[in-house]
Simulated scan of single mutants.
Amino acid sequence: MDKKRYLWEGLDQKRYEIMDILPQEKQSAVLIMRCRNPSDRHWCLEYLGNGHYFSSYTELAEYYQKHFKKKLNNIHF
Rank of each mutant, 00 (worst) to 15 (best):
K70V: 04
Y53W: 13
H52I: 14
A29G: 03
L22M: 07
Q27L: 07
Y57V: 08
S56Q: 10
P23G: 07
G51P: 10
N37I: 06
C35M: 00
C35F: 00
K71W: 03
Q65N: 11
Y47V: 04
P23Q: 02
G51M: 13
Y53I: 12
H67K: 13
K66E: 14
K70R: 15
K66C: 06
S55Q: 12
R36S: 05
K26H: 10
L31Q: 03
N37Q: 07
Y63M: 05
Y53D: 02
G51C: 14
R41F: 06
E62H: 12
S28V: 01
M33K: 09
L72V: 01
A61I: 03
K69Q: 15
D40F: 02
L31K: 04
H42S: 08
R34Y: 00
G51Q: 15
L45I: 05
E46F: 12
N50D: 15
R34M: 07
K26N: 10
K70Y: 07
Y63H: 14
E25V: 08
S55N: 15
R41E: 04
S39H: 08
Q65R: 12
M33V: 00
Q65I: 05
E59R: 09
P23L: 07
L48A: 11
L72T: 04
Y63T: 07
V30Y: 03
F54C: 06
K66F: 05
M33E: 07
N73W: 01
H67E: 15
Y64Q: 02
N37A: 04
F54W: 11
G49L: 07
Q24S: 14
L22A: 04
Q65T: 11
E25G: 08
W43P: 08
M33R: 10
P38E: 03
N73F: 03
R36M: 03
K69L: 14
Q27F: 06
K71Y: 09
L45C: 15
S56K: 11
K26Q: 11
E62M: 13
N37D: 13
L60R: 05
Y57P: 08
H42R: 12
H52N: 15
N37R: 05
L22C: 03
H42M: 10
S39D: 09
A29Q: 00
N37W: 03
Y64F: 14
C44Y: 06
K71T: 13
K26W: 09
Y53L: 13
N37E: 09
E62K: 14
